[in-house]
Structure formats: C-alpha cells, structure tokens
C-alpha cells in the first residue's frame, strides 16, 4: 500500500458517500444516471469475485464489501425506493449502456492477463469501469444545471483514478516486476474521459458559478 493508492481509495469512498448523502438527504436521484450506477455494480461484482477465495487484508476485504454493497444499494434506491424513484430522469438517461457491456466483454475475451474465468472477468471489470461514467456525463450535459452534490460526486469519482495512475507510476519504479498494463491504459482512458468535466468544474469553482456543461 502506498499513499497514492490510499488517497485514491479514500477519494473513491468519498465519492460514494457524497452520492449516498445526496440521495439520503434530498430523497432524490435527479441528475444521477441509473445506468452508470448499474454499470458500477457490475464492475464491482465482476472484479471482486475473489472476495471470499483470496484474502489480501482486512482493509481490502472491508473496502470490497463496502463498494459492492453501496453500489447495489444505490441501484436498489433508484429502482425501488418509493420516494427516490420518482425523481429519476428516465427520459434523459437513455444511454445504451448494454452496448458498453458487450464491447468490454468482447475486449476482455481478447485482451486479458490469463485466459481464466476470474482473469477475464477482472479485465472486463477494468474496461467497463473506464467507460461506466459515460451515461452519467451524457445525463449531466442533457440536464443542464448540475446540483452541487452531483458535481462533487463526479469530481471525486474522476479524481480517484488519477491517484491510481500516480500509484502505478510509483509501483513501477519501486517494485521490480510490477507491470499492470491493462489497469494502467484503462485508468488513463478513464481519467481522460473526465477531462472536459474537470475543466468546466474548475471554471465553475473559479467563477463561483453554477456548474454548466455545454450541451
């Protein structure tokens, strides 16, 4: 464990706590893409298949349980919670996210570290996470103004993988055999997808104005 990875994990945790806070306090999921949340649930379930078979550390296990349970809880909230579900922007959240799932599945079958069920699922989850934010970014562009908590949620979600890139650089220089190209390339693509959001987020922060993404 290094400081970059710990900061990344904490930033990721904060993004989830901000989203839970928004849904819990406002009892609303307006501006939140259910499709992105469903993709994240798939990402965590397919990535942490080794949750019960491969014990790394208490921290690792606890964080995996937190990520899986929170992502499933958020999907449940938006789909089933009698109050929250009413504020779901169903007509705006129309990204065909199952296409992303299909494309990542094909890519994982072609590019993986080892051809085993667990490794292919792991590569699939890495690729899917890189593009999982797309339905959310599209929804933000369509829904015009973005409320603060939603903006902060996306910001922390984008920032966490940037910390992971620093972690991979650090591990590359500090550990002999460390190469993790699949994670690294996907992580760079993932962070790049947030580039324009970060730009508009910075502008809105500098001008102290409402976050507006151009349509």
């Amino acid at each position: 464990m290094n400081v970059f990875r710990f900061a990344g994990d904490m930033t990721h945790l904060i993004s989830i706590l901000v989203l839970l806070l928004k849904i819990y306090t406002t009892k609303s999921c307006s501006g939140i893409s259910l499709k992105t949340q469903e993709l994240y649930a798939v990402v965590f379930v397919t990535r942490y298949l080794d949750l019960v078979t491969d014990f790394i550390s208490v921290y690792n296990t606890v964080m995996k349980v937190v990520f899986i349970s929170s992502s499933l809880a958020i999907v449940w909230c938006i789909r089933r919670h009698k109050v929250v579900r009413r504020s779901y922007d169903k007509e705006l959240d129309t990204f065909r996210h199952w296409l992303l799932v299909g494309a990542c599945a094909v890519l994982a079958l072609v590019v993986h570290e080892k051809f085993s069920f667990q490794e292919v699922c792991w590569a699939f989850s890495i690729y899917l996470e890189a593009v999982a934010i797309l339905p959310q970014l599209v929804l933000l562009q369509r829904s015009g103004n973005v409320d603060n908590l939603t903006g902060q949620y996306v910001f922390f979600l984008g920032a966490y993988r940037a910390f992971y890139i620093l972690n991979w650089i650090y591990r590359y220089y500090s550990e002999q055999h460390f190469t993790r190209w699949i994670s690294c390339v996907s992580g760079i693509v993932q962070t790049a997808l947030y580039a324009d959001f970060f730009y508009y987020y910075f502008i809105s922060w500098k001008n102290n104005s409402k976050l507006q993404l151009p349509a």
Binding site: R5, D9, H12, D50, D54, I56, S57, N60, M63, K64, F67, W122, Y164, N167, E175, H177, F178, R180, S183
Partner: peptide, 10 residues
C-alpha cells in the same frame, strides 16, 4: 507471493 502481489488493488 505472486498471486498475492497480483490483485492487491481495489
């Protein structure tokens, strides 16, 4: 050790 080093990231 190898497997431990492999997937120790979240």
């Amino acid at each position: 050790a190898q497997s431990k080093a492999r997937k120790d990231e979240l």
